[in-house]
Design a binder for these strands. Structure first.
Length: 267
DNA sequence: ATGCCGTATGATATACGA
């Protein structure tokens, strides 16, 4: 069974319905995980997105901040959300897909400006969130677990996941303590970074470009914050990965672009 | 080091993003 899974931080789903429709037209994902939907569940644009082809939709949203959703052409079972760091802040949704694939969609806290957990509660929250993720998956580690973890993880781990490793070493998203926390997450279930599985670490790739820099493409000061990971049981199923860079240049763009992975799972 | 811009909100300034 072939399945095409995408993740996209849309920065307001209500403003991005036309962009989602365009992604469907041009890239046709079977499953699309959204972050930063920024809307309460009763105002989610359910009808428009069902019309776009996603019959099965799971949402977890709140007013103004955060919010995640899973849009799917395929049935979703065992939809669940977990409380992380004791907060009900709509940063996670999971569901079981056909083929026994357990999908987890995350929006990891951005972490604020100051990369010091003693001075900045948001940075402390980010590190605690990542450690809790590592612990949670570590406790559930099984050789045959078919897990896919996607989302805006708000960390660009490799040197070539940012436009300038040296200039971003003290900038939240690329600091050594965050990279170490992410490596602890990788180890928790021996995850494979599906994007870097296909694109060597020698090549610079990004999934986010700030709204604040005009001429984002020419200056190209991006970071790779959006990820798709799979557990060892799914590594042989990996077929293709792509980052839809062009989406940053669409009308009314998000500052993040979609990241898509193809899997071929034995029936 | 700063500003740059976009989004949401009992809004016309503020919080947040990263």
């Amino acid at each position: 069974m072939k399945i095409r899974i995408a993740t996209w931080n849309v920065n307001s789903v209500r403003l991005r319905v036309p962009a989602v429709e365009r992604l469907v037209d041009e890239h046709n994902p079977d499953v699309l995980c959204l972050q930063e939907t920024k809307v309460q569940d009763d105002s989610f644009p359910l009808k428009s997105l069902k019309s776009a082809g996603f019959k099965h939709i799971a949402i977890s949203g709140q007013k103004s901040y955060n919010g995640v959703a899973i849009l799917s052409r395929l049935p979703l079972e065992q939809v669940d959300k977990k409380v992380w760091c004791g907060k009900q802040d709509c940063r996670h949704l999971s569901a079981l897909l056909p083929g026994g694939i357990e999908l987890h969609n995350f929006y990891v806290p951005a972490g604020g400006d100051i990369p010091d957990p003693n001075e900045n509660d948001k940075f402390a929250h980010k590190l605690a969130f990542m450690r809790e993720m590592a612990d949670w998956f570590g406790e559930r580690r099984r050789k045959d677990n078919k897990l896919v973890l996607v989302g805006d993880l708000n960390v660009a781990p490799h040197e070539n996941d940012v436009w300038s490793h040296k200039q971003l070493l003290k900038v939240v998203s690329h600091t050594p303590v965050e990279v170490e926390a992410m490596e602890e997450m990788y180890r928790s279930h021996d995850w494979t970074d599906a994007i870097r599985h296909f694109i060597p670490t020698s090549e610079k790739i990004y999934s986010w470009w700030s709204y604040r820099s005009p001429n984002w493409s020419k200056s190209d000061k991006g970071r790779r914050l959006d990820h798709v990971w799979v557990t060892p049981a799914l590594k042989p199923a990996l077929r293709h990965a792509e980052i839809v860079r062009a989406a940053r240049g669409w009308d009314k763009p998000s500052d993040h672009v979609p990241v898509i992975v193809n899997l071929d799972v034995p029936d």
